[in-house]
Computed example of a mutant assay.
Amino acid sequence: MKRHSIALSALALVSLSSMAQDAVVRIGHVGPVSGAQAHYGRDNENGARMAVDELNAQGVKIGGKKVRFELIAEDDAADPKQGTAAAQKLCDAKVNGVVGHLNSGTTIPAAKVYDSCGLPMVTPSATNPQLTALGYKRVYRLLANDNALGAGLARHARDVLKLKKVAIIDDRTAYGKGVAEVFRNTARTLGMEVVSEQYTNDKAVDFTSILTSIKSKKPDGIFFGGMDPQAGPMLRQMQQLGLSKAYLFGGDGICTEKLAELSSGARTLGNVVCAVGGASLDKLPQGKTWRSRYDAKFPKQFQVYSPYTYDATMVLVDAMKRANSTDPKVYAAKLATTDYQGVTAKVQFEPNGELKTPAMTLYVYKDGKRVPIN
């Protein structure tokens, strides 16, 4: 018995010694894990954490040395100031690369911080086109931008639903304002009349006065540029005010599984048409098996972007492998030549960091469930 104990202790020491010799590679992740958008942030962080766990199980070697990955997770509460503070914290911690941020309003100012300290950043969800127009060499986006989402929804409204009059509300964030502007401009180009343009903010929950004003214009549909903590109450108030026949359009910010809960069973949920910058997981070769692994690890937490944070983490590590280095100064150049089959897409980048040939999926809600229609 004593010899057995000694043998086990020796084995444990060998194991600890082996772990101590592994090179540690730290991947930073930033998202809102507090506040009204915490369900998005947790989902994003889960995807990155799942990738890190799977990479560690594979026993990855880079530059001939076994590496152990760690996720360094920060909270930006969807606030630009907290976003830049979190970015500086990751720079100071000398992480090896960054996945994030969730929101365009936090990602755009954070990108400047990462650029100044030479850190590559892959965003899984920030869709404002301005991000890749800033000229930063180490910034990449893993899904379609607002130009695709806003325009795709406007075309669907006109060509498929045959709408003639639309109203627009945006929350004045970089994301909400950006996607609403694309929808508005495309709608007008396609011959639809924009009968009302209204503004709110990303903390509001009462839209009665805005919706009352819009109702008098008798629109066929309303486009909301914003996130689901606002879209949920908006749907309830649309029902209460008798706007029960108007469609509610929105980008990926409202296109979550939680929207049904946030709308508290409002019948107007059935009028939602929303867009996500990627293909439906159900239609992707690895999608269903990936989702089953995710659900087993993080039950009832899936929202939208976790497959993208998972892929973003894998894309960073793929570049490290091809460069035979975890040093951001060395492997950053390899990101530009990425050719990686991810869960969400075949990942290849344009010279400006945009994803090549991004897909877009339109969703509706049936019986409280989000369902793809293309």
Rank of each mutant, 00 (worst) to 15 (best):
281 L>Y: 00
207 F>M: 11
238 M>S: 10
255 C>L: 06
270 G>V: 07
211 L>T: 06
277 G>C: 05
245 K>S: 15
230 Q>K: 08
193 E>T: 11
264 S>Y: 15
253 G>W: 06
196 S>C: 01
203 K>F: 06
244 S>N: 15
204 A>E: 01
186 T>W: 00
236 R>N: 12
221 G>Y: 00
218 K>Q: 14
194 V>D: 01
257 E>L: 04
195 V>T: 00
247 Y>N: 14
289 T>R: 15
268 T>I: 04
217 K>P: 12
226 G>Q: 01
201 N>R: 04
272 V>C: 11
286 Q>N: 03
288 K>Y: 06
256 T>A: 10
222 I>S: 10
217 K>Q: 11
274 C>A: 11
187 A>I: 09
235 L>C: 03
191 G>I: 01
250 G>K: 13
258 K>V: 10
284 L>M: 09
198 Q>P: 10
259 L>P: 01
200 T>Y: 10
285 P>I: 11
251 G>H: 09
287 G>H: 09
222 I>L: 01
225 G>D: 02
212 T>D: 00
190 L>V: 05
232 G>H: 00
277 G>F: 03
244 S>E: 13
194 V>S: 08
280 S>T: 10
275 A>I: 05
212 T>A: 07
205 V>C: 13
248 L>R: 09
201 N>K: 12
208 T>H: 14
243 L>M: 14
198 Q>A: 13
259 L>M: 00
288 K>Q: 02
262 L>V: 12
218 K>T: 14
234 M>G: 08
264 S>E: 15
206 D>W: 11
254 I>C: 02
188 R>P: 15
282 D>S: 09
221 G>F: 05
220 D>F: 00
251 G>F: 02
274 C>T: 06
219 P>L: 09
252 D>Y: 03
275 A>N: 06
280 S>G: 08
244 S>R: 15
189 T>M: 13
290 W>L: 03
221 G>P: 12
290 W>Q: 11
202 D>K: 14
279 A>I: 04
188 R>I: 14
192 M>Q: 09
193 E>W: 05
274 C>D: 02
193 E>L: 05
243 L>Y: 03
273 V>F: 06
206 D>Q: 13
246 A>T: 04
244 S>K: 15
235 L>R: 10
258 K>W: 02
282 D>H: 08
281 L>W: 03
238 M>V: 06
251 G>D: 01
195 V>M: 05
198 Q>H: 10
264 S>L: 14
262 L>F: 13
269 L>R: 04
226 G>M: 08
282 D>Q: 03
219 P>T: 12
234 M>C: 07
268 T>P: 14
281 L>Q: 00
237 Q>D: 04
276 V>R: 05
271 N>T: 04
241 L>N: 00
286 Q>P: 12
187 A>R: 04
231 A>I: 08
261 E>G: 02
186 T>D: 07
228 D>C: 04
287 G>C: 10
272 V>T: 11
256 T>M: 09
226 G>C: 01
265 G>I: 09
186 T>S: 08
233 P>W: 03
266 A>R: 13
241 L>C: 13
245 K>Q: 15
232 G>F: 01
250 G>Q: 02
257 E>C: 02
273 V>I: 06
275 A>D: 08
264 S>I: 12
198 Q>D: 08
192 M>I: 06
275 A>T: 11
235 L>S: 08
232 G>R: 02
288 K>D: 07
